[in-house]
Design a binder for these strands. Structure first.
Length: 897
RNA sequence: GGGUGGUUAGCUCAGCGGUAGAGCACUGUCCUCACACGACAGGGGCCACAGGUUCAAAUCCUGUACCACCCACCA
């Protein structure tokens, strides 16, 4: 006999290995079959997978396995993402532990080490995906990486093509700079957080001594880079003063008072200091008025190009010093408490500095328009649909995308500069490379993957590659087709593109999803997928985001270790509705674990009765009430599950099967089958049980692949058509129902329930058999109960069931009512009359209240006139039923007195 | 400032026009020959608040409060 409790570990190890070895998950273009393609969000090689990965990959695995069982050629290509800044930060942290920085190693050595890390971390991640049960073929030749040779070719082709169309340009613009990561970021890589700060009111005096203008600012230190003070042209307070010169405090510079529409009259003092190099709005004002653009904050986040006293200070220190000096100079008018949001680096949470810098950009307007159209027309459909609006709104308001990053790990920008043509403008570092933040001053780039042999202009051979790398999302945006070999015209691309569905968390809707849609349309003329399923974020049980600093991170592998993969998958899938965030806790997994165990034990139960040497059962399908009923329930569960899957309602799809197995199959059918398995015709009962149970295993396989495969592999030996691995089986079809059984079964279940309740309330031990009298005035009901007597006897532990019309209540007995039946349970000893009265009175009260409500509605002419017929009939029936119950209960209670 | 979603049993959430449901937790009985990771039974909810529509509202509409998230050049 097998152990009582299911042990997931050996089972998971066995099947995981078998599936890979048999290349079960491999997909090949197959002319006769419709493909079903899921685009995997490639995990970054920044470390172990977390709970969010477990969620997204399980979700995808469920879809892939399900569709495969429905007969589609399901394709899900594994891969990892090089992860740009995130991975570089991980590497730098490791180096720091050795007391080194990346500059100690140099670019080449640093890249070598990062590639080695990719080797380690990448395969660890693939191993973890395997543990999650993902139906991914992990043979090395099948695994993609955003920086492997083929993907690099795709990146170059995309870059070249956009450059040729003038959709990529290099320019000097306001960007978000992270002084800690030492790189520019795109707008969406900045996260804004509300911070308590101050609003400083600073007096700028007129050069001619005719008074002053007060400006309000949250960043006094940037005043060292001011090149004007601006007011709204409509602002009467200032209109006469516009054009006058102001003395910039703490410096010896003079700046003009200008008028610009960007300034709001009602904010602060209505006058704003303009720092074109370090504020996005000021930059625009500066452009409009052709102002100087002194850069006073360096790429390291320190003051520069300013009075000696502040030079080299950090922004924070400079702020303090500037405020102090303003105070002592009598120029600080006031200081207000103020809350505003501050931009932070999404990768390292440090404050970002807006500053002007020369970078590479993608012009987005033209790319965004067709993506918006695709969403509007339903060519790309969102689940849940509420994401369509934010998607189109973001695209409609899109800014150019800064794609250059001043880091080392990533796709090097395929642009080269000729040293002899453009030497005057190029700025070099000591190593002869272009410096970390390069100024090419309009030097003409040559776009080439490899170093060009000669400069097309002057023929010189001394070309230097742009030192920057591309935003990691640039390569990610090509993923849905780069994985199939684009830009080559491959058979895979032809067959699998576009994909069916993209499943990912809503937090990367703009970073990734929107950009994939744009690039798919741009390069292949079609959106890369027709459906987008956006799920929520896995949070801790209090709804907090999991983070290392909060110490509330749950490691999926630890959960698997403790409860098993199927249990974790089940629990995660039970909560993924509507794209809402998922509060996850260890305890939540217990439910899944218990269900897995339930399946295992149901199988164990059947195996007790199956012959030891497996052979297909020779049997006829039985057709008694319970058989017909359970077949009906099975069919209904499958239908509901399937319908839910069509709408990506994973929890509902799973729950329909769960409820069938637990509530119907185990609690009722198996219990009813027990005596039948001891007697003649047991093969028939076993055959039906096997058919339904193995069918349910198939249907459940996408959700819990391991336990279902394990159980099926044992049970299938008794089936006429055993099949192979579950993944190659068809998702089950609902069988034809022979004749309706639900109503009859429900009637019996009601009687059983009433007897059980009476037993329980009067603490009749479960093992003790009792007598029951069932009285009814309805002869048909009595006939039905007679037919079902065996069920009642079995499940309510009744040794003798007497049926009859208007049977008198035996002395010392309990009473209960179920449908048309009045049930009496004679007791051995005295009955606690008070308890019985209280119980029945409560029932009576309930029935009275119900009856009153029904009558109230039936006596309401408006209800009778307006409500649909079916509704009035229903209420009427209930009124009759409750009335009957009331009169019978009243009689019983009278007798008790 | 704009937008979206939420507010239902102690907890996590279903239900979205016909008299409130699940899982977990709780109480009682039972280690009944599949499963105590179990069985059976039970307790527990003016469905955030205020109006409105309707014969009928947790469910539709309007507003309020609180929570969460997203977007925005909040000097």
């Amino acid at each position: 006999m097998l152990s009582k409790a299911y042990e997931p570990k050996p089972v998971e190890a066995k099947w995981s290995e078998t599936w890979q070895k048999e290349r079960l998950f491999i997909s090949k273009p197959s002319a006769g079959k419709k493909p079903f393609v899921v685009v995997i969000p490639p995990p970054n090689i920044t470390g172990a997978l977390h709970m969010g990965h477990a969620l997204t990959y399980t979700l995808q695995d469920v879809l892939v396995r399900y569709q495969r069982m429905l007969g589609r050629e399901a394709c899900w290509v594994p891969g990892t993402d090089h992860g740009g800044i995130a991975t570089q930060n991980v590497m730098e942290k490791m180096l720091k532990a050795e007391g080194k920085t990346r500059h100690d190693l140099g670019r080449e050595e640093f890249l070598k080490r990062t590639w080695a890390w990719y080797g380690e971390c990448g395969s660890m991640i693939l191993g973890q995906l395997r543990k999650l049960g993902c139906a991914l073929d992990l043979a090395p030749e099948n695994v993609r990486f955003t920086m492997d040779t083929k993907r690099a070719a795709a990146v170059f082709e995309a870059f070249r093509s956009l450059w040729d169309k003038k959709l990529i340009y290099r320019g000097e613009r306001m960007i978000n700079w992270c002084p800690r990561c030492g790189t520019a970021l795109s707008d969406i890589e900045v996260e804004y957080e509300e911070e308590k700060s101050k609003l400083w009111h600073i007096r700028y005096q007129f050069e001619d001594g005719s008074g002053s203008v007060t400006v309000a600012t949250t960043r006094p230190e940037t005043m060292l880079g001011d090149s004007a003070v601006a007011v709204n042209p409509e602002d009467a307070r200032y209109s006469a003063l516009v054009g006058k010169k102001l003395r910039l405090p703490l410096t010896d510079r003079l700046i003009p008072l200008i008028a610009d529409e960007g300034v709001e009259k009602d904010f602060g003092t209505g006058a704003v200091k303009v720092t074109p190099a370090h504020d996005p709005l000021d930059f625009e004002i500066g452009q409009r008025h052709k102002l100087d653009m002194p850069r006073v904050i360096s790429y390291e986040g320190r003051m520069t190009n300013c009075p000696e006293k502040y030079a080299g200070l950090s922004v924070q220190a400079a702020r303090k010093a500037v405020v102090e000096d303003l105070v002592s100079g009598g120029l600080l008018e006031k200081e207000e408490h103020y809350k505003h949001s501050v931009g932070k680096c999404s990768r390292c949470s440090q404050h970002i500095e807006p500053l002007v810098s020369e970078q590479w950009f993608v012009r987005m307007n033209r790319l965004a328009a067709p993506a918006i159209a695709a969403a509007e027309s339903g060519g790309v459909k969102f689940y849940p649909p509420s994401w369509k609006k934010p998607f189109t709104a973001w695209l409609g308001n899109i800014q150019d995308w800064c794609i250059s990053r001043q880091i080392w790990w990533g796709h090097r920008i395929p642009a080269w500069y000729c040293r002899s043509c453009s030497a005057a403008g190029l700025k070099f570092s000591d190593t002869g490379e272009l410096s970390r933040v390069s100024f090419t001053h309009g030097a003409k780039p040559v776009i080439s993957f490899e170093k060009p042999a000669a400069c097309p202009d002057c023929g010189g051979a001394d070309l230097l590659q742009d030192p920057d790398v591309l935003d990691t999302w640039f390569s990610s945006s090509l993923w849905p087709f780069s994985i199939f070999g684009w830009p080559e015209k491959t058979a895979d691309l032809d067959y699998y593109y576009p994909a069916s569905v993209l499943v990912t968390g809503y937090e990367i809707l703009y970073l990734w999803v929107a950009r994939m849609v744009m690039s798919g349309i741009e390069y292949l003329g079609k959106p890369p997928f027709s459906q987008v399923y956006l799920h929520g974020i896995v949070r801790d049980k209090h709804g907090k985001k999991m983070s290392k600093s909060l110490g509330n991170v749950i490691d999926p592998l630890a959960v698997i270790e403790k409860y098993g993969t199927d249990a974790m998958r089940f629990s995660l899938m039970a909560q993924t509705l509507g794209g809402k965030d998922i509060p996850f806790s260890d305890e939540a997994t217990v439910g899944g674990r218990n269900f897995v165990n339930k399946l295992y034990n149901a199988a164990r139960f059947m195996q007790m009765y199956l012959p030891e040497t497996p052979a297909p059962l020779e049997a006829e399908m039985p057709e008694e009430l319970a058989d017909r009923w359970i077949t009906e329930r099975y069919g209904s569960a499958l239908a509901r599950s399937r319908a839910a899957m069509e709408e990506y309602d994973i929890p509902k799809a799973q729950d329909a099967l769960y409820a069938f197995i637990w509530d119907d199959f185990c609690d009722w059918y198996l219990e009813l089958a027990k005596p039948r398995l001891q007697s003649e015709g047991r093969e028939n009962v076993l055959a039906l049980m096997l058919e339904l149970f193995t069918g349910a295993l198939k249907a459940l396989h996408p959700f819990m692949p391991y336990v279902t495969e394990e159980l099926y592999s044992n049970l299938k030996l008794y089936l006429k058509k055993p099949g192979g691995c579950l993944l190659n089986e068809s998702w089950p079809e609902a069988p034809r129902t022979v004749s309706p059984a639900a109503a009859e079964m429900l009637e019996l279940m009601g009687v059983i329930g009433q007897i059980r309740t009476a037993r329980s309330q009067f603490e009749i031990p479960p093992g003790k058999a009792i007598k029951v009298l069932a009285s009814s005035s309805d002869p048909e009901a009595l006939a039905r109960l007679e037919k079902g007597a065996a069920y009642v006897k079995l499940l309510a532990k009744v040794e003798e069931l007497r049926l009859g019309r208007d049977l008198p209540k035996p002395p010392r007995s309990l009473s209960a009512i179920s449908g048309s039946f009045t049930l009496y349970v004679p007791m051995d000893g005295a009955v606690d009359l008070e308890k019985e009265k209280a119980r029945l009175t409560k029932e009576l009260e309930k029935a009275r209240k119900d009856n009153e409500q029904c009558l109230g509605r039936l006596n309401d002419p408006a209800f009778v006139a307006r409500a649909p017929r079916a509704e009035t009939e229903k209420i009427n029936a209930r009124a009759v039923e409750t009335a009957g119950k009331i009169s019978r209960l009243t009689v019983i209670l009278e007798e008790l007195k």
